[in-house]
Design a binder for these strands. Structure first.
Length: 440
DNA sequence: TCTGGGGTCCTAGGACCC
DNA sequence: TCTGGGGTCCTAGGACCC
């Protein structure tokens, strides 16, 4: 094992102040804020998926963790209140939380639904107080106005601010000044650091580096020799040199859109597996159209029971977000990947190389009239979906097969009454004819 | 350690061109 | 066709994040 080289960690007090805010058990807290009678009780969201999406601190205290099956939860915590996730409500809380933060600084990065970075640099004067006081006020405002608690870290860089917000939860506030950095990195396992995963942690362990402090103290030469750019950046951030800016532009443009579904039990049935895939494609297309994006590449992947096997990528002759145009490439990708007599557990689709819909071009041989007509059809489809719910209109190719009806039955869903109406349509479907079906 | 469904970015290597 | 050097573009795969 190589000895750990040391490097001094001395930094002037607050060249900049970056705040990281992380809502505590966000989904569960929103539910408790909306339904005060749930305060103090173990609340769990994720009912629709069968696993814990979020657990309130009362539930966590009883050993309930994220990702645990709900059947397990009932054993651990029989009096748990299990709710389906209500993303609309959580989004509203999220929006209001960001609004409150913007009252303190215009530089707010909405990192995820329940997390944000804020650049506080230079604001002490206008608030007549330290960065700690500003953070406290923000924390207070959120609690009194929204009824949820948040944990905050303030330090010299994003990575250190994240270390701070995780340090004390819930309702914590941790200030890490340049002089204090080593105290917080000392006992911190390296893989807990934002940007360092299990793989990199295992690699660095071979050099005797196990804590965040061990890593921060390695010298530049070592870091440049053994690690790639992202890890070099984390190293600078841990040393109090900010390299990740607080990004203000809200993430508008997706690079890719993917949809995947796992089914239980695994299936041997080709038609069923393909129908699943087609359904994913439709969902991905709906989302792409909502953002006025079109795909130039389509990735198709099937996963076996062991979750092995990667996808194939198909270049599209025309950028599109219309399933009818994508079924042929989808079939092609499926045929390349699908192995008969294999148990599949998951199918998925990625719309990649997304460009603005307005930038899509007609090829030399495209039938422009036909494409425009298709556009109008999908406009109607999208409107219907909005009014009557997703999947009020579906392509016949993604209609449930008999086996799927069984699968859904096993999950306790309502049986699909429409399934039997579509016997014999497989042939047309294979010819790539656009079949639309309105569910009643 | 995986759960399950989203995403992003980086790197290495190959294809292709001059 | 290979020689040699250089550049760009694309893609697959890895690693990580919430």
């Amino acid at each position: 094992m190589a000895p750990v080289e040391t490097q001094p960690l001395t930094i002037s007090s607050w060249p900049q102040a970056i705040l990281h805010l992380d809502a505590d058990a966000f989904f569960a807290s929103c539910e408790q804020a909306v339904h005060p009678e749930l305060k103090g009780r173990p609340v769990i969201t994720g009912k629709e998926r069968g696993i814990v999406a979020a657990a309130s601190y009362e539930a966590k205290a009883r050993g309930v963790q994220r990702g645990v099956r709900l059947s397990e939860v009932k054993k651990l915590c029989p009096d748990a209140v299990i709710l389906p996730s209500d993303y609309e409500t959580y989004s509203l809380f999220s929006v209001r939380m960001f609004e409150i933060m913007r009252r303190f600084s215009p530089d707010v990065e909405e990192y995820s639904i329940d997390e944000a970075f804020v650049d506080l640099t230079g604001l002490r004067r206008s608030f007549h107080g330290s960065y700690e006081v500003i953070a406290e006020k923000m924390q207070q405002a959120i609690e009194t106005e929204l009824g949820i608690t948040v944990s905050i870290g303030v330090s010299l860089s994003k990575v250190l601010a994240k270390v701070g917000s995780k340090h004390k939860k819930p309702n914590g506030l941790t200030m890490i000044s340049g002089r204090d950095i080593h105290r917080y990195l000392q006992g911190l396992p390296l893989e807990k650091v934002w940007g360092i995963g299990p793989n990199t942690a295992a690699f660095l362990r071979k050099f005797g580096i196990t804590t965040a402090l061990d890593f921060a103290r390695k010298d530049l030469r070592f870091v440049e020799q053994h690690l790639s750019k992202p890890y070099q950046e984390v190293w600078h951030e841990l040393n109090g040199r900010s390299v990740y800016p607080v990004v203000l532009e809200s993430k508008s443009a997706y690079q890719s859109i993917s949809k995947a579904r796992t089914f239980t039990p695994a299936s041997l049935d080709e038609t069923f597996v393909f129908a699943q895939l087609a359904k994913n494609l439709e969902n991905a297309c709906i989302k792409a159209r909502r953002y006025k994006l079109a795909a130039t590449r389509l990735v198709v992947f099937l996963r076996t029971q062991e979750f092995t096997g990667s996808g194939v990528e198909i270049k599209l002759s025309r950028a599109t977000a219309y399933p009818v145009e994508l079924f042929a490439p989808l079939r092609e990708g499926f045929d390349q990947t699908y192995r008969p007599r294999t148990l599949y557990r998951q199918t998925g689709v990625v719309l990649a190389g997304l460009i603005a819909e307005s930038a899509t071009q007609y090829g030399l041989f495209d039938d422009t009239a036909k494409i425009e007509k298709m556009g109008r059809i999908y406009d109607v489809v999208d409107q219907l979906s909005e009014k009557f719910g997703k999947h009020s209109v579906q392509h016949a190719a993604s209609l449930p097969t008999k086996q799927q009806a069984q699968h859904e039955g096993a999950r306790g869903d309502a049986p699909q009454r429409t399934a039997s109406l579509f016997k014999g349509e497989n042939k047309r479907q294979r010819l790539g004819l656009p079949l639309l079906h309105i569910k009643v």
